[in-house]
Amino acid sequence: MLNLLKSDMYKIFKRMSFYVCLVLSLLAAGYTVWTFEDTIRNMYKKQYGAYASMLGLDFDSMTAKDFGITAWSVFSQSVSNAILLSAIFVTIFLTSEFGSGMCKSIILRGKGRVSYYLSKLVSSITVPIIYTLAICGVSFGIGAYRYQGAEWKEEYLKDYIIPLGWFALVTISWISVICMVCFLCRSSGFSMAINLGLVTILPGAIILAIMYAAKAWFNVTNIEFAKYWIGNYSNVSLYSGGMQNDEMMAMIYTLCGWFFVPMIIGILSFKCREIK
C-alpha cells in the first residue's frame, strides 16, 4: 500500500487542478481576511445600528483594533473553503482514475482493492489538510500585515488552534464521504454534482427531509438530527472557546460514523464491482 500511496501523492502534486484549487482557496481566504474589517463593521451596523447614537458609537470611525480583530482572529476564518475546494479536487482526482483506465492498470497488476481504496482515501485526506494549512498561513500573513496583532496569547490555543484540530477531523470525515461517492459513481460529472451538493446546498434540505420523515412516519420529534449531520460541524467558529463534554462526544461519534461507514460502503462496493 505504501507504493500506491507514494504514487498517489506524486499524482496529486503533479496535477494542475491541485494548484488551481489551492490558488482559488488562497484567493478566497485573502479576500475574506482583507475585507474582514468591513464585514464586521457591516455586521455591527446591522445589529446595533439603531442604538449606535445612544451608545455613543460611530462604527465608521472604529478601527480593526476596536473590533478586536487580530491576525490570530482571522487566520482560520476561511478554512471552510478548504472543504469545498478539496471536494472539487478530490472528485477530479479520484474519478480520473476510473476515466483514464489507470485504476484498471493498477488492479490488474495484482494490487489489492482494499489497499487501492485506502491509498486513495489517505492521499485524498492530505489535500484538505494542505489546503487548510495553506489558508491559515496566508490568512495569518495577510491578517498580520493588515490588522497587526500577531503576538501570541495563551487563550488563542483554545480559541483558534484546537478548533482547527477539530476542523481537520471534520474534513477527514468529509473526504471519506466524497471518496465513497466517487467510488460508487465513478463518473466525474455525476460524482462532482453529488459531492458539491453534499458540501454546499443539500445538507439543509436533507436534514429537513429526515426530520419531516421522522415526524410524519415515526412520530419522532425529540431527536436533533442536525446534531448528527457532518455538515453541521463544518464551521470552525463552532469550536471556538471550547466545547461541553456531551457536545464533544456527540461530535466525535458523528465524525467517526461519517468516516467509517462511507469507508466500509466504499470498500465493499469497490471489492464487489467490476472494473471497466
Binding site: 499524482k11 503533479k14 496535477r15 494542475m16 480520473s96 483514464s100 483506465g101 489507470m102 484498471k104 492498470s105 490488474l108 497488476r109 495484482g110 494490487k111
Partner: peptide, 17 residues
C-alpha cells in the same frame, strides 16, 4: 499476479500529464 500485465480495451494514462 504482478508479473502479468496488459493493455486492455483502451490505452490507460492521464491525458493531462
Amino acid at each position: 499476479r504482478s508479473d502479468i500485465s496488459a493493455v486492455i480495451e483502451y490505452p490507460a494514462f492521464f491525458p493531462n500529464m
